[in-house]
Write a protein that binds this DNA or RNA. Structure first.
Lengths: 120, 120
DNA sequence: TTGACATATGCCTAGAACAGCATACGATGC
DNA sequence: GCATCGTATGCTGTTCTAGGCATATGTCAA
């Protein structure tokens, strides 16, 4: 079996740095393909292909404007990623670390007192 | 050119659903490999390989315990993902949509008044 | 109509992956 | 020492990729 297709879901689609870059560029508002080509320093066909992948997972949408096509971000497609990764936020956020300490205190536990075994 | 290695960064590492599943399982605390094998219904070598990828991007760390190896999540490795995707939160969060409305009002703009053209 | 512009698609190559299976390695218990 | 358990590594086959280039499609201007 091979790796899952990039169009399988948003996780796979945005694993490619160029596509994140494209989304970042589109973050400022809708833009034609050629704009992206200039900024990315990549061939026009390549950019079109990246846009296709992003379109297929719903991360961008298109609007026709004469002979140009204006792309824009569709943020909702990124929500699953946000939701998933937010579940781990407590592992690095000071706010949550402090919350954990408070909860410990309320429980009468002293989890952080006697441990000399901290990971690397 | 081929797709970037899965060990390139956390984005690529967690593009694989099994690896997200592993992280989710480890979210409850450290666990030996065999535990994960049972829950994933996947071969032990495969699980070990997924863990290797996660280790290489720093998403998990290991601790030896006799002949077992206990893995745990290292949440900080996921922070870049969270940071990146959070930049788009305003595109779906009601809170931010309302904030935008307020800001519009403060500017004297009436962007949402005369529009019959709302997106899909 | 003809030519220039804007974008999408097709073909090719090299590289990388995931699962499956066999096997190697290290720790434990007898 | 030897069998066993727990885990990691190696090899193979299939699949999918990203870039490069040529080209097709569609739109505008003269």
């Amino acid at each position: 079996m091979a790796r899952a297709a990039t169009t399988t879901d948003t996780f796979n689609a945005v694993a490619e740095p160029r596509r994140r870059q494209i989304l970042d560029l589109l973050g400022g508002g809708e833009r034609p393909v050629n704009d992206l080509v200039s900024e990315l320093g990549l061939g026009q066909p390549q950019v079109s292909k990246h846009l296709r992948v992003l379109r297929e997972v719903g991360a961008v949408s298109v609007r026709e404007d004469g002979r140009r096509r204006l792309y824009r971000v569709n943020g909702e497609a990124l929500k699953p990623i946000h939701d998933w990764v937010s579940g781990y936020e407590r592992l690095w956020s000071d706010r949550f670390v402090q919350l954990d300490a408070v909860l410990d205190e309320l429980q009468g536990n002293e989890r952080t007192e006697g441990d000399g075994d901290d990971g690397e």
